[in-house]
Simulated scan of single mutants.
Amino acid sequence: MLIRFNKPYGVLSQFTPEGRWTGLADHIDLPGVYVAGRLDADSEGLLLLTSDGQEQARIADPRFKMEKTYLVQVEGIVTDQALTALARGVSLKDGPTLPARARAVAPPAELWSRNPPIRERQSIPTSWLELSIREGRNRQIRRMTAAVGLPTLRLIRTAIGPYNLDGLPSGTWQKITP
């Protein structure tokens, strides 16, 4: 069994709550499914869960390099220079990243509101980019955008390999065919 879940902001990638964050049990009441990969509590979007250990490893294990795609709202204006740096790979404290696919995109028209909303500063514009990576280091997207001078304000994973969020409202899940 494979499930796609549109994880809201503030929900951990585990069934039990911790501190101020809620757990998956508040949204998914299915025994025997396990998270395939992680998504930080302050990130939103696609999370896959499965009852198949081999499928879980294939999705989550960095050795398989399954591409993950994100919509990222950043503080500042996305420049060609920033996109080129992201596409080539950027240097982080734990070493250089692999090259990424990066492009500036228009603000998403069909996006759910976030609770709480992102911080907004009247003097600093925001913009959006789509970023696809094949590795999954801790807070990697946020660190990559910061490295090119574009702090992340909102991070939404839209796809993992062939699986995507299309038409799935925030906080809901659906069984899919692997």
Rank of each mutant, 00 (worst) to 15 (best):
P162R: 15
R20A: 09
L39D: 03
G76L: 04
R142C: 07
A57R: 15
K175A: 15
L168T: 09
L24E: 09
L153K: 14
F15Y: 12
R154N: 10
E18I: 00
P17N: 06
R142F: 07
P8D: 12
E55S: 05
I160E: 06
D42N: 15
R63V: 12
G149T: 06
L153T: 06
G37S: 08
L155M: 12
T172V: 00
V90G: 09
P151G: 11
L129G: 03
N164C: 11
F5T: 06
G19E: 04
A36K: 01
L129W: 05
D42K: 04
P125W: 09
G149I: 07
S91D: 13
D29V: 02
L83E: 04
T22E: 14
V72A: 13
D166Y: 02
A25N: 12
Q122D: 12
L39C: 05
I141R: 00
P108A: 06
P107S: 10
L83A: 11
V11P: 03
T69S: 14
E67P: 11
S43W: 01
I176H: 02
A87C: 10
L92S: 13
M66K: 10
A104I: 03
L30S: 00
L2D: 12
S127R: 07
L129N: 01
Y34T: 03
Q140A: 02
R88C: 06
M1S: 14
T50Q: 05
V11Q: 03
L168Y: 07
V33A: 01
M66A: 07
I141S: 00
R103L: 14
G95F: 05
K93W: 00
G32N: 03
E135G: 03
Q122S: 11
S51Q: 01
W21M: 00
D80N: 12
D52S: 13
L165N: 02
L46E: 09
A146K: 13
R58T: 03
L39N: 08
I124L: 11
L46R: 07
A41F: 09
S132L: 10
Q140T: 08
A41Q: 11
A147Q: 02
R20M: 03
Q14D: 01
P17L: 06
S113R: 14
I77L: 13
E44I: 02
V74D: 09
I176W: 01
V78R: 03
T126V: 13
G167R: 05
A82V: 04
I156S: 06
R143Q: 10
W112G: 00
